[in-house]
Design a protein around this nucleic acid. Structure first.
Length: 341
DNA sequence: CACTCGTGGAA
DNA sequence: TTTCCAAGAGT
């Protein structure tokens, strides 16, 4: 790694990005108002691998329904999953629910120390540092996608950033560059720089406050850093779902507490060798793309008289709106049921 | 360490 | 249309 003025004088780095953030950063995001530990935790869990514009309406709805950690700790699973429905990565919702119960019933108060925050379900090194910074305005190093990109370019770090060797370097830099004061604005500055200036493509180097010190900019390698990781082929899987209507109700099944769409309600899914498919009629098909595979889904009308799958319940058109459904299943139900008179 | 875990915005 | 990838964590 090239030596940088910022490494010998970390305060210079902090002062530079903090000053930039005051005038050019984002300062009106919903979770920046009343940044209590609870609000910061909820926002950070929602923001994991999810864009700000996607999270905002979910965060608003969540806070209206579950305004404090005691409300969340007392809520039931279906309420939590319904509020999360459509956001994806549903383990985050389960972990957030567990976290609230753990903090309220076991700890008694929201932790302050990094090591204590790390014992909370769903909170890893990044999120622990983010809660320290945003909720307590205390020392809390963060390395997320934004910081990885920013540091790889600024210090000319080679190698795929998610490998352990590079990851270790990035955290060492974050530990060293994070100041002892102004942590809330400092952390926001790193995220804002990565999101609005040091972008993955079309980096806006001309308006970057770190430009003169940036190794990638000074060597013309902004487009090459960080090193892209080799992409792998994603497999396609087939899924078979049952459409079973009775009167004004539709049969839905609670999915298991692990695996894809865990704890959500869905059309009952069966193996392609299932007896219920033997004389079933195909209602239609759709495709859905996940991060790691593609799903070719078929929806079947089984012959009448098939036994109800375990863990299934009947829902009418109003009840279906209030439970957590996978996005493509909800979409299918809307098109084929709700919008049909 | 490699894999699992969603969805949608943006180029 | 395809591709990337986003305030990552758990196993």
């Amino acid at each position: 790694m090239l030596t940088s003025e910022y490494l010998t004088c970390p305060d210079l780095f902090a002062d530079t990005v903090v000053d930039w953030q005051k005038t050019d950063g984002r300062n009106a995001l919903p979770w920046q108002q009343d940044p209590s530990p609870y609000r910061v935790m909820v926002s950070e869990l929602m923001l994991q691998q999810t864009q700000v514009t996607t999270v905002i309406p979910y965060f608003q709805r969540w806070m209206q329904k579950l305004p404090d950690i005691h409300a969340l700790a007392a809520a039931d699973t279906d309420t939590v999953m319904a509020l999360w429905q459509g956001l994806g990565y549903y383990a985050r919702a389960r972990n957030l629910h567990k976290a609230a119960k753990y903090i309220v019933f076991d700890l008694g108060e929201f932790p302050f120390e990094l090591n204590d925050l790390l014992t909370i379900p769903g909170i890893g090194r990044y999120t622990a540092g983010a809660i320290r910074s945003f909720a307590y305005d205390a020392y809390g190093p963060i390395v997320d996608g934004n910081v990885r990109r920013l540091f790889c370019r600024l210090f000319g770090i080679e190698g795929v950033p998610t490998t352990s060797a590079v990851d270790k370097k990035l955290w060492a830099l974050a530990d060293a560059l994070t100041p002892k004061q102004n942590n809330r604005r400092f952390a926001q500055a790193l995220l804002d720089l990565g999101a609005t200036v040091c972008k993955p493509k079309q980096a806006d180097c001309l308006s970057c406050p770190l430009q003169t010190q940036c190794v990638a900019f000074n060597t013309g390698r902004v487009a090459e850093l960080p090193t892209a990781k080799p992409k792998k082929m994603t497999p396609t899987k087939a899924g078979h779902f049952l459409w079973i209507e009775q009167g004004d109700k539709l049969l839905l099944q609670k999915r298991p507490d692990s695996g894809i769409w865990a704890d959500l309600w869905s059309l009952p899914q069966v193996d392609e060798t299932a007896e219920s498919l033997l004389q079933a009629k195909l209602q239609g098909q759709f495709q859905h793309v996940f991060s790691h595979y593609k799903l070719d889904a078929s929806v079947w009308h089984p012959v009448s008289g098939v036994s109800e799958p375990a863990g299934s319940s009947w829902y009418n058109k109003e009840q279906v709106l209030e439970i957590g459904l996978p996005a493509p299943i909800r979409s299918w139900i809307e098109k084929n049921w709700l919008k049909k008179s």
